[in-house]
């Protein structure tokens, strides 16, 4: 029986960078009880002897040559920027490590 508490959901929301209201945290945690029960079924057949599949096709070694191709102009690069300054993306203060 898998379930996620309100605090679990809050921690996941923090990891996923999504602000959530108290009501949303609580409703999601109850939904997850149902959803996780449904998806946990995968464990029934996922034995140690089964190889996981990460890519649907068995391709290997797909590379490109080390050749420079033209970049966007800075105008194109910044065309969608919510804010910019001196050809750079302007973003709110970054709190964190240097």
């Amino acid at each position: 029986m898998s379930s996620l508490s309100r605090d679990d959901v809050a921690n996941l929301a923090r990891l996923a960078r999504i602000e959530m209201s108290e009501a949303e945290l609580i409703s999601l945690s109850s939904e997850f009880t149902v959803i996780l029960d449904a998806v946990a079924r995968v464990q029934e057949v996922a034995g140690a002897d089964v190889e996981p599949t990460s890519h649907p096709l068995p391709l290997r070694n797909v590379f490109r040559p080390d050749v420079v191709i033209p970049s966007l102009t800075s105008g194109e690069a910044l065309s969608g920027a919510p804010a910019q300054e001196e050809s750079r993306f302007r973003v709110p203060q970054i709190l964190g490590e240097e």
């Binding site: 998806v39 946990a40 995968v42 464990q43 057949v45 996922a46 034995g47 089964v50 190889e51 996981p52 599949t53 990460s54 649907p56």
Partner: peptide, 15 residues
């Protein structure tokens, strides 16, 4: 392992 890993194994079984 319990979730993503197991799901990838199911993928192998389906294939």
């Amino acid at each position: 392992d319990a979730y993503y890993g197991s799901a990838q194994k199911v993928r192998t079984l389906i294939t």
